[in-house]
Simulated assay, not measured.
Amino acid sequence: MSDTAHGITTGAVARRLGVSPTTVRSWDRRYGIGPAVRADGRHRRWSPADIAMLDEMCRLTASGVPPAEAARAARQARTSAEPAVPDVPDAPVAPGRTRRPGPGSGLPLGDVRQEARGLARAAVRLDGPAVEGLLQEALAEHGLVTAWQEIMVPTLHAVGRKWESSEDRYVEVEHLLSWHISTALRRAAVTGPATASPAAPVVLACVPGEQHSLPLEALAAGLAERGLPTRMFGAAVPAEALDAAVRRSGPVAVALWSQTRSTAHHALARHVAGTAFGVRGARRAPVVLLAGPGWLGRPPAPGMMRPTGLPEAIGVISRLYGEPAASAKE
């Protein structure tokens, strides 16, 4: 870690604030939002006061202030008074958590990991490259399960709450964030351990009328981390298409996602659980996982399970393949 007495690097400060290093350098070149002192006269090294200035720049641009105007205000804040210094690397903060909510994203995040706060900042600014970079770092550092549950989901929920309470504002933020999360999850699924296994796959599908497919994409990525075969069919799969997919693929399990009770299709779930295939004398039916909050309120029927979250879903499916759940990367 850099010596904080001499400041931290541009890459480090960019990760802390949820922006790309290119954005930080661009602000310096265009608007004079740079460190007061440079190491060897060339390399940018950011002091706590410099970071506070960048933090103010992030807060203002996220609230819609034009960058040039935000830069003037941020520079004045540094020179006119002692700014409120954000947490720096040598501050005693619990691992993965911020000491206080702090300004910047305008989203109701609450007590979350610092990475979620940075992701929210980048999303509100519509800084796609920063969002992509932060998601890649989160997956590499924490693994799929932790990155999904503690970074991606809290940020998505905060955007959704902001959208609902602001008369359809922030819709563009939700779309950008969802697209980049989907891209990161699909990339993680593709780069999982290569498998040429003849084993029957897991079918992943949203019930008819259900458009929320990101949780299933997270499950697909988690199964890919373990080298388990999947077939992803995505959002709003028609009942006839799901029936055909199950009969043609002969899956070990079928995960059906329902976000709300209005989309939960219990008759379809029972039909899938009762679909038998294979040779005569050795016919079998898939285990049906009722995934998502839409299935709550009614006990699972025979042949069905209702996992409470991503780790449990991965564990249940792994055991169907004879693998211990504890080996999942978290």
Rank of each mutant, 00 (worst) to 15 (best):
V202G: 00
E82Y: 05
L177P: 02
V171R: 10
Y321R: 13
R29M: 09
E164Y: 12
C58M: 14
L242R: 00
A36W: 11
H271K: 08
M152V: 15
H142R: 10
M53Y: 12
L135E: 07
T9D: 08
V287W: 01
L54M: 13
V279W: 08
A68F: 08
A123W: 05
E172I: 04
E82S: 11
A301I: 00
R248Q: 10
I181V: 15
S2H: 13
S105K: 04
G128Y: 08
P67E: 14
V202N: 02
P101I: 06
H175I: 11
G41F: 09
R72Y: 10
A138S: 15
S166E: 14
D50E: 10
A12H: 06
A49D: 12
A200R: 12
A94I: 07
R231L: 12
A91M: 08
V237H: 04
L126H: 07
H265N: 13
P86V: 10
S47R: 03
L268W: 05
M57P: 06
A239L: 06
V153C: 08
G315T: 07
P66T: 10
A196R: 05
A239G: 14
A71I: 07
M232G: 09
P101F: 04
Q259V: 00
S178T: 15
G41I: 10
A196F: 11
R16W: 05
Q114V: 11
H157V: 15
T308H: 13
A14G: 14
P229W: 05
S165T: 15
P302N: 06
K162E: 04
P86G: 09
G250V: 00
E69W: 09
G303A: 10
D243E: 12
G11F: 07
T10K: 05
E132F: 05
D127F: 02
P67M: 00
L156Y: 04
G41D: 11
V173H: 03
A39H: 14
L126M: 10
R248Y: 01
G160E: 10
V93G: 00
R186C: 07
G315F: 05
E323M: 08
P300G: 07
R248F: 02
A84V: 14
A253M: 04
A84Y: 09
S63A: 14
R261F: 06
S178E: 03
I314K: 04
P129H: 10
A253H: 02
R319N: 15
P103D: 13
V287P: 00
I51G: 04
G96Y: 02
G110V: 01
A255N: 07
G7F: 00
A273P: 04
L296E: 15
A189W: 03
V145I: 15
G209S: 11
G294Y: 03
C58I: 15
L204M: 01
L216H: 02
V145C: 02
P92H: 02
L290V: 03
